[in-house]
């Protein structure tokens, strides 16, 4: 079943199209990697999915819910981990978690249970009353990940998730994503860390100049790039390099 369905999406800033006619899907229990050079339009796609940028053309749906017609139901089914941690100066870690849980109508008991699990996993139990702005980049990113995994969305939109995370936190985060995949959730992940993406993602979408350059599994991408045994980095270099 398609969890996220993007059809002929054109979006950008002030009527200037940065992405042009992009279409793809994220299925149930699938991790899709959104890759491409800087300025290719990955973040614009993510912002359009989140409803931060208005659509110029096309359609975005999560399950049967259209972003334009049913924004509330759409937003309820999405969790977002931004590239740059977006935290409030004025709130402690506990308050950030409470704010997210309350905003998504999480049951109080479930919230308590999930919070203690996540705090333990990311080793932040003793930072509950600290202000995350005093945290390191990696710790801030952990807060964002914890907030996204507090509730039960259909799809996770994750922008550069491994930036700033230490190897153990990266491993724990990958385990968490895989667990969600097993639960039938969808993950759309934009990343530049191709080695990790190759191990984690089921499918890839290579974006360049606001359009899909290639899409498919690693084998399918190899065929498109005419590389027999290369890794994702080689395919990326060939496909993105060719079009420049």
């Amino acid at each position: 079943m398609n969890l996220l369905n993007i059809r002929s999406l054109s979006g950008g800033y002030d009527k200037i199209k940065i992405i042009k006619g992009v279409s793809f899907q994220v299925e149930e229990g699938e991790i899709v990697g959104l890759i491409g050079p800087n300025g290719a339009g990955k973040t614009t796609i993510i912002k359009s999915i989140l409803g931060i940028l208005p659509l110029i053309d096309g359609e975005i749906k999560i399950l049967q819910y259209n972003i334009k017609e049913n924004p509330l139901e759409f937003k309820k089914r999405i969790a977002y981990v931004p590239e740059t941690p977006l935290l409030y100066d004025e709130m402690t870690l506990l308050e950030h978690l409470e704010f997210t849980g309350m905003s998504h109508g999480v049951d109080k008991d479930i919230f308590t249970e999930k919070t203690s699990e996540l705090l333990k996993l990311f080793k932040l139990e003793d930072k509950l009353h600290h202000f995350p702005n005093s945290f390191s980049k990696g710790m801030k990113q952990k807060v964002m990940i914890m907030c996204a995994f507090l509730y039960d969305p259909s799809i996770y939109v994750i922008d550069e998730p491994f930036m700033g995370l230490d190897p153990i936190a990266t491993r724990d985060f990958i385990d968490l994503i895989r667990l969600k995949k097993e639960e039938g959730k969808g993950v759309l992940m934009s990343t530049h860390i191709l080695d990790t993406a190759e191990k984690v993602c089921d499918r890839f979408i290579l974006i360049n100049y606001g359009q899909i350059e290639a899409a498919g599994t690693l084998d399918e991408l190899r065929k498109s790039a005419e590389i027999e045994h290369g890794g994702l980095a080689d395919i990326y270099e060939r496909l993105a390099g060719d079009s420049e």
Binding site: G51, I52, L72, K75, K76, L86, T100, S103, H104
Partner: peptide, 9 residues
């Protein structure tokens, strides 16, 4: 961002 992204009516 959160004021806009989170599902408030």
């Amino acid at each position: 961002i959160w004021f806009r992204v989170y599902p408030y009516t």
